[in-house]
Write a protein that binds this DNA or RNA. Structure first.
Lengths: 356, 356
DNA sequence: TTTGATATTGCAACCGATTGCATTGATTAT
DNA sequence: ATAATCAATGCAATCGGTTGCAATATCAAA
């Protein structure tokens, strides 16, 4: 048995075919490597029949282009780096799918790194991508990121960086976002329309623009409808399951009990609903709830969750398309733009106090 | 405004620093590039003080090693390709997290490709990874993959491929799996113990080992407990939301109604529970349900879902560690092994007919 | 002083594709 | 017939790091 296995491995090793290069092809066809290189890239100066011969032989020999030689010479990697705060999020995987679709079409590779919501890892990832010489970067910031120093090396080398979702308002880089303030406003206004008077808000680290702006929208809706803002109604957690349960318990401890909650994350909202229901609270009769993101979970939880539809796929596609346009020199100015994607409120059972 | 922006871009371009190479460092220190190269890799033959000088200057100049030149020369990419059937699955993202942890530690890069459950894309991804010259491959097969022809180029070149979860039983390659038959048996036996007599089974494409084996376990449990297997109790769908709703409707149309269902995917189970509840079925009183995977959703759905814990993280780590050991020559034989990971039944409310 | 061993460093040839600048031969215009 | 034009191909340098094999220097042993 062992002997056999060993011999098999050995044979395999011996049989390993030599890698075919353009020189091999050139020699066999009595051409120069330059011609082969051009032919394989469909260069206009090369004769069509020559191209055909070369393509055929290349295929027959199982030729595969050596990216490293090519990258080395061209000083380009055709690779885009993506830094996200978390992989285990339906929103993020949708964005990634959108990015992947576009970059694949444009023949770019992707390196995906995730920061697990920490500045340290985000920073390390950025450095790593820098060393890998990505041609461009797409990023969404971690909870506790307070500056963009780790992206400076890219700036210095003229490597474009586009942010999405979690961005830095002040920076003048390119961003793709939704109008979080408006979304927060709509979610809250909807609860008010449903008759809620004491609306709580569960959110995450307010250093992050997305949460800060949603809070602003929440506050604006309250004030425009003559309700006064109560700091104690705002709970900040980290969106984890444990934290969400704690948040729900805080809600339960409020006196008087809130009659509506705007929660900035569907998963967190689902856990809260569960916890509240276990405590005997009826949703939406006692407390109406609106979530955020339109994750699949919003349709599974009972009652189904009203939420803000935040189209991840679309965002990914737009971010990627923008970056690639820039890389290919089709656009210079777009990189200084802020692109705002539409989002909308989806009303489901969890917030419907007034039945038709 | 426009003028400004243009000038800024232009300046940026002009200011773009020249890339530092080992030759620059060598020249400044009056050494050879060879020495610099060795020093940066901590080669034992280089004097410690020389190393220090080189390291310091490299840091000061912002030197970054050129991976392409290095890969080109070394004929290695230090990159591992991963092919998965789907990204939007909690199980898969857990596996990826596990893989990433190990590969990052070992200083390998990752290229992640997903097939969206189609053979065509899986095949294209494999070819792509082959052209990218990954040093090794980790893969989980798509629904409709019926042969491993697309992995042959790797085999021919002696590039190791390890499969996990969705594998080909017959192939003699390396695999990391759980005992799906046993898991299916336990899930079904548990339902029987709870008093179920008419147990249905919702699963996916039976060409895939995981589903075929779970079905076997289901059948075995029935027969060992004196229940007879009824083909009509087995529903095959594609685990999508729409398909899951249809499956639930099929269950509702069965006469007599089943009193237990073993569903081979938690998301599908969640959707089914929802659909069944809407039809007035009580879970678990009328129908007890066991899912598979222990996704977060199993704790959100009401009632909480009994399920099989399938430890994604651990699987990812084991797969990656195996591959890397092999790549680094620490192990030859492990690649021909099948590694079986433990899985276990987690009992929650959805299957508990007998209250203690 | 000579020899051998050891510690450092350098030389130069790779790795494979790309591309500016010829070169060659054929065709067309004058 | 000759010059000019164009199509097709080749030459040779380049990208930056790696590594086998020398070369040199240093020191201790003989």
């Amino acid at each position: 048995m062992f002997g056999n296995a060993y011999i098999a491995t050995d044979c395999n090793f011996m049989r390993r075919e030599k890698e075919i290069t353009i020189y091999d092809i050139a020699k066999q066809l009595d051409l120069s490597a330059a011609t082969v290189s051009r032919a394989l890239k469909d260069h206009p100066a090369i004769n069509k029949q020559t191209k055909k011969k070369i393509a055929d032989l290349a295929h027959k020999l199982g030729y595969r282009s050596n990216t490293f030689a090519s990258n080395l010479r061209k000083q380009k990697t055709n690779t885009i780096g993506v830094i996200v705060h978390e992989l285990k999020s339906q929103f993020i995987t949708s964005v990634l799918a959108g990015i992947e679709k576009i970059t694949t079409e444009a023949n770019y590779d992707l390196i995906i790194a995730h920061s697990s919501e920490t500045y340290a890892k985000e920073s390390a990832n950025a450095l790593n991508l820098f060393h890998k010489r990505v041609d461009g970067v797409i990023a969404s910031l971690a909870f506790d990121t307070t500056d963009l120093a780790h992206f400076e090396p890219f700036e210095k080398k003229g490597i474009p960086v586009i942010f999405f979702d979690r961005v830095f308002e002040e920076s003048d880089g390119a961003k793709v976002i939704i109008n979080n303030r408006k979304a927060g406003y709509e979610a809250t206004a909807h609860l008010i329309e449903q008759g809620c008077k004491r609306i709580a808000h569960i959110t995450a680290n307010l250093q992050r623009n997305v949460y800060a702006e949603r809070l602003q929208g929440y506050q604006q809706a309250l004030s425009e409808h003559g309700l006064k803002y109560n700091e104690k109604h705002v709970i900040v957690d980290d969106l984890s399951e444990a934290a969400s349960i704690l948040s729900a318990k805080k809600i339960l401890a409020m006196r008087p009990l809130p009659d509506g909650i705007f929660i900035t994350n569907d998963f967190c909202a689902a856990v809260c609903i569960q916890t509240l229901k276990e405590a005997g609270i009826r949703i939406p009769e006692d407390i109406a709830i609106v979530g955020f993101n339109n994750d699949v979970i919003s349709k599974i939880i009972e009652p189904k969750l009203s939420t803000i539809n935040y189209p991840g796929n679309e965002i990914g596609e737009i971010v990627a398309r923008n970056l690639i346009n820039h890389l290919q020199g089709n656009s210079n100015l777009q990189l200084t733009n802020t692109i705002i994607i539409k989002s909308e409120l989806i009303v489901r059972a969890s917030s419907l106090k007034k039945k038709k």
